[in-house]
Design a protein around this nucleic acid. Structure first.
Lengths: 248, 248
DNA sequence: CGGAACGTTGATGTATCTCAAGTGGGGTGG
DNA sequence: CCACCCCACTTGAGATACATCAACGTTCCG
């Protein structure tokens, strides 16, 4: 399986969520943004449930999620899965990992994914301090997000966990301009949600019903709508600062 | 089993656990190791329960734990705490974080801590590719460790969580030469352990008793001994690869 | 039209929490 | 050197959030 070079023109304003996200994390010049766009030369569409970490990709480099949901996860011997992060549009993931451990990664929905070779990436980082800083900021945000998930699973109730996750996702989708009126695509199953927040899918179901009944959210036909972000944030004790600069 | 403060073996005496740890993550020349030792500008001893993130340190740079336990954590409004990582001897922590969020960090025991100014660190990274690589590997390992904790809290039973944590700690202490006969210093309270693994301190107590009774560990006078690493690893499904190159 | 995947519901079980009351040991001051 | 005190640890009883098991409903799509 190779990377067909197919440039999609369907990005908002021709700007990929990738440079949109990085543009929030550092002050990118228009040259920087253009360079990032240029680096994303090859794009492919991948079906749901596909592996992203394996040998399906040619060489070392970076994956960039343009559309859809991906995740990183860990498996236990008995088959139970802990999802450790989501990749949503604009997110990227280094596929290096000199570490022996195979970093498990897969798609949770149909995805459009770009690939940036390591050489191109390194050149970019070297030529633009802003890009380098944006990438380093992205790493800091990813780390903080992971710690926030640990807090959720360790110390929050089921209702708070889901509320916090939805607040986080709305904020992240907003940051790449893919939230519309507090709504965003959410094609994950309740099973996936359970594997994310350390809950059984049955309990996820009941907790979602509770959130719906209390008018916090609606979740229909793979679209999640936050009905009252302030109230939901309060319920979850959500503080958006860990996600980086939030508004312009 | 007594616990000698100074290393029993003569090898690398006077070498900080910091360069010891980094030396495992990349091939450091003797110049690299010496440069790392030299980079340590100042060393201080800090009592238990002290803040590490605040203004206690002069400027931007990196903290290096030389002795003792530190942690990073998140607090909830109700005061409950989730510890998100341990800093044990050899570990370091960037105190940059352009992120607005104050990164919470404190000591869990009396600590000896070194400080490396950012300028010195940057110079080191630029002058030695090996050091840069070691630092980047350390970041990968830290990330993997965080994900493993998320797996623990999300999907493992109390007994498995503690077992996994102890396997991890033994491996990490071994990596810096501070484990002796499967024993290492463990001055944390059961309260701290609960905040680490998302458990109440009462349940930690009962789980520890169970592990002791089954001859997995002993934990007396702040020394933890793993009685049967193979069995404990099996119980926890511990796979050390995420911690980096393990032997030699 | 049928099957598979996802969602919903009810009943029951259990791991873990909370509350509450001790116990023990290592410093400290007298 | 002893007595005391504080903090960590221990133990028991009862509560509960969440898991598991087992149906059944619904949607989607070939």
């Amino acid at each position: 399986v190779t990377f067909p070079t197919k440039r999609s023109e369907s990005d908002l304003d021709g700007v990929s969520p990738f440079s949109r996200k990085l543009g929030r994390l550092a002050n990118l010049s228009s040259e920087d943004a253009a360079a990032l766009e240029g680096a994303i030369a090859s794009t492919r569409t991948i079906e749901q449930g596909a592996d992203l970490a394996g040998s399906s990709h040619p060489s070392k480099g970076m994956l960039v999620m343009l559309d859809g949901y991906g995740c990183r996860y860990i498996l236990r011997d008995d088959g139970s899965r802990q999802i450790t992060s989501y990749l949503i549009p604009g997110d990227h993931c280094d596929r290096n990992s000199a570490l022996d451990t195979p970093r498990l990664m897969s798609t949770l929905s149909t995805c459009r994914i770009a690939f940036i070779p390591r050489s191109v990436l390194d050149a970019l980082s070297r030529s633009s301090a802003s890009i380098a800083e944006a990438l380093s900021m992205a790493a800091v945000v990813e780390d903080a997000t992971l710690r926030e998930w640990l807090m959720s699973v360790g110390r929050r109730t089921a209702e708070e966990r889901l509320a916090h996750l939805f607040c986080e996702l709305l904020t992240r989708f907003n940051a790449v301009g893919l939230a519309d009126d507090d709504s965003f695509r959410f094609p994950l199953t309740q099973f996936d949600l359970g594997d994310t927040m350390g809950l059984s899918y049955v309990h996820v179901n009941r907790t979602l019903q509770s959130l719906r009944q209390q008018q916090f959210i609606t979740l229909r036909s793979k679209v999640l709508t936050v009905l009252d972000f302030a109230r939901l944030s309060a319920l979850a004790e959500f503080r958006p600062d860990y996600l980086g600069p939030t508004s312009a």
